[in-house]
Amino acid sequence: MFQDYEPEATRRNAGDAESSRASRGWWERNADEYQTEHGAFLGDDRFVWGPEGLDEAEAGLLGPAGSLKGLDVLEIGAGAAQCSRWLAAQGARPVALDLSHRQLQHALRIGDDVPLIEADAGALPFLDSSFDIACSAYGAVPFVADPVRVFREVRRVLRPGGRWVFSVTHPIRWAFPDEPGPEGLSVSASYFDRTPYVEQDEAGRAVYVEHHRTIGDRVRDVVAGGFRLVDLVEPEWPDWNSQEWGGWSPLRGNLIPGTAIFVCERD
């Protein structure tokens, strides 16, 4: 069912339950459009960390491609499981988890070669120490009110020494309008305002929620979740990428970072 109104954009508090309901509903309504618009860029079996186009095959943030063979890997917020499909091609044993049933239907449309799980990242349906690696390319983390709870769940299902790598919108972007052109280059809000961005319906119910954390907040959350931060990657905009994706664009990407990737390890 498609909404016949224009949601109201605001900044207000939104807790775990409201954020989870909003995310599930948003992706159920918008998965088709998202895959139509971005499917060619994402590919069917490519691991892309963000709109800049940084490819895991090049970055090796999970480890050298040859080292992934035989490893159990959990992808959180997998969407149509493109990243998991790439992992399977490297010989890994991926499991693709997403909150949205419709997104996972797109994963099945592309292929049935990866196990799919519909679940919330804050309550992972796996036994302790089930995976060697967990990863998330813009999945789950930006949309949850309590990222530490998610990180602790990830730590629980990882084996000792396991790696957790996730990408999010770069926190500095919250100080700028979400526009790809020149109007998106002037600071319009406080970087330190952590009030969530919420789109709500006519009854005031959230239909989309995104949570802002500063770089320092993210680092503290990683530590509170039981991880060591071993790298923080801020991809530069490559010359080959001429696309606009929401507020991401070559103009902005050449001046300010758009993505932050946190590379963490479990002791």
Results as ranks from 00 to 15, higher is better:
D217A: 06
E28L: 11
D32Q: 15
A31M: 06
W49H: 10
S84L: 02
P196T: 10
L232W: 15
E6D: 13
G77A: 07
A203Q: 15
G122H: 15
G66K: 09
R156A: 00
G70D: 02
H106K: 14
S129R: 13
I76C: 02
G139E: 09
W164I: 02
F176H: 10
D132M: 03
L185E: 05
G253L: 07
A140G: 00
D193K: 13
P125F: 01
E234T: 08
L68R: 09
G60H: 15
R93P: 00
A78C: 11
V73S: 04
L71Q: 14
L127H: 09
G253M: 09
Y5W: 10
D4P: 11
E37K: 15
F227S: 03
G15F: 01
A31H: 11
G216Q: 14
F41N: 06
S167T: 08
G204V: 08
S20K: 14
T169G: 05
L127M: 00
D98S: 04
D98K: 10
W26S: 12
Y208Q: 02
V73H: 03
F143A: 03
H38Y: 13
A134E: 02
A96F: 06
G204R: 12
Y197G: 03
M1G: 15
D16C: 04
A134F: 06
G111C: 02
E234P: 08
T214I: 07
D4W: 12
Q3M: 15
R109T: 09
A189L: 11
V150W: 07
T195V: 04
I261G: 03
A119F: 08
Q82L: 00
R11G: 03
E179K: 15
A175L: 03
D128Y: 01
P257N: 12
